[in-house]
Each structure stands twice: as C-alpha cells, then as structure tokens.
Amino acid sequence: MKIKAAVVRDKGGPLTLETLDLEDPRDDEILVRVVATGVCHTDVVVRDGLLPTPHPVVLGHEGAGIVERVGRNVTKVAAGDAVVMTYDSCGECPSCAAHAQSYCHAFFPRNFFGTRPDGSSALSKEGTRIHGNFFGQSSFATHALCHERNVVKVPGDAPLELLGPLACGVQTGAGAVMNALRVPAGASFAVFGAGSVGLSAVMAARVAGATTIVAIDLHDERLDFARSVGATHTLNPSRDDVVASLVALTGYGIDYALDTTGLAKVIRQAAGSLAPRGTCGVLGASAPGTEIVLDEVHFMSGGRRLMGIVEGESDPDTFIPALIELHRQGRFPFDRMVKFYPLDEINTAIADSLEGRTIKPVVRMEA
C-alpha cells in the first residue's frame, strides 16, 4: 500500500515527507493506522547519525493507532483494536524469559538496525529500499507494521492521540521510579534533567508517595512546571550548588537519584548527592565509550549503588495500561507536557523540542 512518511535521508538533515510503499503484513506482523506519534530525543540522535542506524530510514517509536490488519499467526490483537506501539524484544533470551524484556539480549538489533530480523525492510520507494522497523514500528508515518511483542492493546475510550509517549519517554521516566528504583512512600528523590522523561519521573514519584521530590534543570520554566506536577523543591545548577543543596535539604543525602542527561559530570553529581545506601539510576544515553568517574571512597563506604535503566524496566503490557488508568484518575497528568503538530510540521516539532519550547511534541498523522 502507499503511505505517507517522514524520511531521514541526510545525517542531521531535515526529515522529508514522501510517499512510500509498505508491504502487506507478514504472518507475524500487525498493520496499524497511526493516529499520532511522540517525538523522542532518540529519534534525533539517530537522525544525526550518532547511532549506527542506516539511512534512509523512517523513524518514530512512540506510535499509537488502530489495528487495520493482522497476520494469520497473530492472536494478541485484532482489526479495530486501539493500540500503543512500544519497544521490540525477541521473547526468547534469558532476559525476556524473566519478563525483563527491556534488557533483551537482542535489544539493539531489534530496535536500531532498521530492518526486520531477517535483514529485510517492508518500506521502499520506486523499488529502492527505505529502512524501517525502527523500534519494531517506524511510526513517523500514516501506517506502520509492528509485532505482538511490541504492541499493547489499550481501552477503546482512552485518548489515543495522547498515548504514544507512554511507549518510550513517559514509560522510561515513570518506570525508572516505579519499577527499577522502586521508590517507596516517604523517601527522598531527585531527578537530574526536567525534560519529558524527568518530569514523568516527578509525577511517578508523587504517585509513589515520595515526600521530598527535587527537580534539577537549567531552565526555570521547566522547574516551575515540575513544581506544578509534584516537585517539592527545585534547583538550577547555574546558581545552586546541587550536591550541597541536596545534602542540606535532607541532612544526609538523597535516597534515590535519577540522571536523564547522560552527561558524566551530572551523573557524578547525582551519585555524590546520595545518602548512605542510596541508589542512583542512569537512563540518559551518551556516546559509546563515555566513562563515568565517581569518588570511590564516598561510593563504596556508604554502600551506595549505581544502576543502568532501559525503558523504565517496564513490562509494557501491564505498565502502559496502569499509566493510562492513573491518568484517568487525574494522578498522572502527562498530557500537560504534550503539544500537537501535524505530520508536515515534524521538523518544527523536533526543533521546538531541542530548543526547549515544547516539552513533549506529538505528531498527528492527518490524512
């Protein structure tokens, strides 16, 4: 079938809207009419060639839409179902067998190689290959193919155009707090970086019952927003000594810290702010080979912990519906971060995100 899609052709260049050919779904694939897709920083990193995803490629990995067709081996969803498309996994490795699919041994090839597992692509233009299957979906398009492992059925009355960000960015921040760090009621929590991931973590910390919730960012407007969704304190590193302030606030350091920046200097601050037996989660990606330097005596002597986190350690089939229900109850207002753009303004959406004008852009796939 013919679809409209945003294609990355040049490293760091604008996405171009093109008419492409999309193959029919295979026996194990699902054809989704995309309603809307969130714009994530990972899309920008891949656009800029910082990860080895081949170009030309259709990106997009926070898609929400309606199932149109399913392959004959698919039983999880049916035509007409409302769905969110999330990250892909193999379902066969030790991590997947342990229901820890965000650490799938094949996570990188399944999500970043731009092909199906057999090396093929379902996308082409005038017979020329366009890479797809990005995060098992490539949803910067009017239609996408996905798989049972990365499709999540959602309630038919849910606000579908809002739900795409739950697939990655929001799931990552909220899941880091609720699934990975397991921040308990009464704990102190600090997040370094108040973008959509960090703000999702703030909302989740409030749901979890943390009593001291600190957001740290260089942009005061983001800090104001963080206070409006649950932060009890905010710090701006341009004028605040972050580590000293966090220790002074609690008297001994933060119980749980989360870095969303991927910057080694910031991770050191996050780890340096920990109380004895405190835990720091790291989920911001940086260039391969980046090293983290810590004060070994401080880190070891207090029994402090540093852990990597991918996709919030979430089981999407249960966690995404849980976030939808929390939103329905008014306890997880992630919709306040969202601004909508039509597909033909996708480059504006990306620019607004990078410049900090929009916290979470979502692109609507208008026909």
Rank of each mutant, 00 (worst) to 15 (best):
S188R: 15
R222E: 00
A208Q: 01
L199Y: 01
L160Q: 10
R222C: 06
A180V: 09
L181C: 07
V177P: 14
V177H: 07
G198E: 01
A204P: 15
G173P: 12
R227W: 03
V197W: 05
R222F: 00
V154F: 11
G173F: 04
A174T: 08
H219P: 08
S228V: 14
A174M: 14
R222T: 02
V214E: 06
V202I: 15
L218N: 07
V202M: 09
G156F: 12
V214S: 05
T172S: 10
V229E: 03
G209F: 12
A190R: 05
T172M: 12
V183M: 13
A208L: 12
D217C: 10
A176K: 04
V229K: 11
P184A: 08
A201V: 08
L223C: 07
A180N: 03
A176G: 09
R222I: 05
L166Q: 07
P155W: 06
P165Y: 00
V191R: 01
P165F: 03
P159Q: 12
V183L: 14
A194N: 00
D220C: 12
S200L: 13
L218P: 08
L218K: 07
A185S: 11
Q171C: 13
D220F: 10
H219R: 13
E221L: 13
C168I: 06
G193Y: 03
S196L: 01
V197N: 04
L199K: 02
A176Y: 00
A210W: 02
R206L: 10
A190D: 02
L223Q: 00
I213S: 04
L160R: 11
A158N: 08
L166F: 11
A158V: 10
L166N: 02
P184Q: 06
S196T: 02
V197M: 04
R206Q: 04
V154Q: 06
G198A: 06
S200C: 13
G175N: 03
A174L: 14
M203H: 09
F192V: 04
D224G: 09
A176M: 10
L163V: 15
V177M: 14
L166A: 09
D220E: 15
I213K: 03
G195Q: 01
R182N: 08
V177R: 06
A174I: 10
V202L: 11
R206W: 05
K153W: 05
G175Q: 02
D220H: 12
G193C: 11
F192N: 00
A194K: 04
R182D: 06
V197Q: 03
S188K: 14
I216A: 01
R227S: 02
L218V: 12
A158E: 03
A205E: 01
V229F: 15
A167D: 06
A167F: 07
Q171K: 08
A158H: 10
A201W: 04
A205Q: 01
G195A: 01
M203T: 03
A180D: 05
A208Y: 07
V229Y: 10
V229L: 15
V207R: 01
A190P: 15
L218Y: 04
A208H: 05
A174S: 15
G169K: 02
V207K: 00
G173M: 09
A174R: 08
A194C: 14
S228F: 14
V207Q: 06
D224T: 09
A167N: 06
